[in-house]
Computed example of a mutant assay.
Amino acid sequence: MEITSSAMLKTTTTPPHPLAGEKVPLTAFDRAAFDVFVPLVFAYRAPAPSSEAVKEGLRVAVAAYPLAAGRLAVDVAVDGQGRRRRRRVLHVNDEGVLVLDATVEADLDAVLAANVATDLYPALPEHSFGAALLQVQLTRFRCGGLVVGLIGHHHVFDGHSMSTFCATWARAVRDGEAFIVPSPSLDRAITGVPRSPPAPVFDHRSIEFKVESPPVYADEVTKPKAIGAGGGDRLSALPDDLLLRVLHFAPAVEAASTSLLSRRFGALWRSTGAVNLAARVPGAGGRDAFTTVKYQ
């Protein structure tokens, strides 16, 4: 294989794309994607379109996808608290798409049968910053076949957007001057422009996060007093967890009767989790003799 030419393909559109010159922050989906280039290879048997037609179609397609001709960069933004934060952005600066031309003195079918594709697309860059985010290699074969190999950065293209871009490119080559950008198209102008949402004015902290007030008792008789204080109901002053622990070991009937002692006990006995069962089973004295067995 021989690389015959290497050039940066740039686009010129009138009017310019809404994102031209902007630094578009990465979306949450972009940040979740790997910082890698993803290769893709298309093979076409003869007759194949000329390299000039393929490049012109690429120029038209990239005009609709200007992020593909941009570069990864780091921008410094100031958050709401005045702190400076570094963030990755896609600089839509039209630095261009790298296009390589190559020739192979072999037939396309022989190369495809060998299942060797690493030489059919551009070499993967070691670093993403400063590298062309879309790189294309057009490889011509002796039989007239053509292989279009490309690599695209994952922050710019996911599977669906790459498929849509390639469909746009192919249609631009076929239609020529009659080309119309198909729908859907990649338009980050909607999410690329920072929003200025209004600041919340509702006092959530004071209204939705109130501190619970201490319980108010009807009279001093039922109001629990501190443990150790003179007189009063010291048992009612115990916390609920400890009272439930005590009632757990009492028979259900006796635990329920504690609700008569004071309002403090109330329905605590229902939350003890204890189950008391009593059954009468025949005893040794015959069918009329029963023994009461309690399960607690």
Rank of each mutant, 00 (worst) to 15 (best):
T191V: 15
G273K: 00
L67G: 09
P18R: 02
A267L: 09
R83Y: 09
L235R: 02
A229S: 15
S236E: 01
Q296F: 13
F202L: 12
R245S: 12
V99Q: 01
A46M: 01
D175Q: 07
A167S: 15
L72N: 08
M8G: 05
G82F: 08
L150H: 10
V173W: 10
G176V: 11
L112M: 14
A172Y: 03
L112S: 02
D94Q: 04
S262E: 05
L138F: 04
V104H: 13
R59W: 01
V92A: 11
R174D: 10
V293N: 08
D107G: 15
S161H: 06
V148T: 08
G130P: 05
S161L: 05
R245P: 00
D187R: 15
V148F: 06
V111M: 03
H160D: 11
D187F: 12
S262V: 04
A131M: 03
V221M: 02
S50R: 05
K223Q: 13
F202Q: 06
H204T: 10
E105G: 11
N276P: 05
G57W: 08
A226L: 12
K225A: 11
A61D: 06
A170I: 04
T118K: 12
S185M: 14
A64M: 08
V211F: 07
Y121S: 00
D219P: 00
S271D: 08
D109S: 14
D240P: 00
Y217T: 01
F129D: 13
V246W: 01
D241N: 03
A218D: 11
